[in-house]
Design a protein around this nucleic acid. Structure first.
Lengths: 185, 185
DNA sequence: GCATATATGTCAACATGACTGACATAAATT
DNA sequence: AATTTATGTCAGTCATGTTGACATATATGC
């Protein structure tokens, strides 16, 4: 594997204008929107970098088991909502049933997830993690939990509140936002 | 569409155990880690939902032009750092040069991005957006900017500070975190 | 100046995870 | 009895990542 990270902290001495021009010129021009634009761009980039790193560690663990990020998402949410239906999962992930089907079939074939017929509505297939599935879920989520815990600890409780508020504002639907009500108190 | 959210607050007659048990049981057991576990899981989910929605709108605009999210990322960062090198871009995106190459070639063929030879180091290909590229960048970034601006406005300045702090804590490398220094003051 | 390292590009093969479209089955609902 | 809903499946395609190998031009170190 090419060690592309090596170039990371060396910050390529060969790229002189790397990071200031656009902002300096806007600032120099006295553009009153400068701060706002810069602030918003930073948020965009925070989301990019944070998500990239947030998924990085689990991806490695998954790759060792020939699984991918899609499997992780399924395992995570089935662990979160034991006995959830396929529809519910589709709705959270916002992917097609064909895409989900492949991932889900693999997870059941490998013994990570179990399906039970619904009692009230026998068309439903209620999804639960097997012991093997729960173990992998813990392993994967642990890396993310640690990362978040570290960030929360360093930032402090007020920052955590602010983080939550902003993140909720970024989410589109009331339905999704509602998932976060009355749970932290 | 099925109202899966109804299942969340315990209704969903068909799936009785759908969303509360795991937490309630932990809570009932008086587990002191309950709040922390719940808090951390919420953070994990906030990241998932926020990122999903954050990329949703640009993806639609991109699809109309037969481009994808990978093209967006390149256009965004080239717009952010005009004249940046290929190495720098590789380092930010953390993908292989072969992956980047395909996307970059397409963008140049379609006239979104221009390459100029570096003056100091003539091996470098300095990347800049063309007018067409800058226009698309504005269009794409505008949707994300609006989303963030709305979230920031509703959450308030203190929340924004907290959001920043937590997001920075989630990012792995000092080098990446350093990109956010001394820019918002 | 020669050897080596670096920045970039390119060919080829492959895996993953998304998509569309079409069709099938069983169970619930009207 | 007709329709809708929950789920599954087959087939094809596309976007985006991967590894490995190799090529070229330029910069740098001795």
């Amino acid at each position: 594997m090419t060690d592309i990270n090596s170039s990371k902290r060396g910050s390529s001495p060969s790229s002189p204008s790397l990071g200031g021009d656009r902002h300096r010129s806007a600032k120099a021009g006295g553009n009153p929107l400068f701060l706002r634009d810069e602030e918003l761009r930073q948020a965009i980039e925070l989301l990019f970098y944070a998500y990239r790193d947030f998924t990085g560690e689990p991806d490695i663990i998954l790759a060792e088991r020939d699984l991918g990020r899609a499997h992780h998402r399924v395992i995570y949410f089935v662990g979160r909502y034991p006995g959830m239906t396929v529809s519910h999962l589709l709705d959270i992930l916002k992917i097609t049933k064909q895409s989900l089907s492949r991932v889900l079939s693999q997870l059941m074939a490998e013994g990570y997830i179990r399906q039970d017929q619904g009692q009230e509505d026998r068309r439903q297939r209620l999804l639960t993690l097997t012991d093997k599935g729960a173990e992998l879920e813990r392993l994967l989520t642990e890396t993310q939990r640690k990362r978040i815990a570290r960030a929360y600890r360093n930032a402090g409780p007020e920052a955590v509140e602010g983080f939550r508020d902003v993140m909720l504002g970024i989410i589109s639907g009331d339905a999704d936002r509602a998932r976060f009500e009355n749970r932290g108190e």
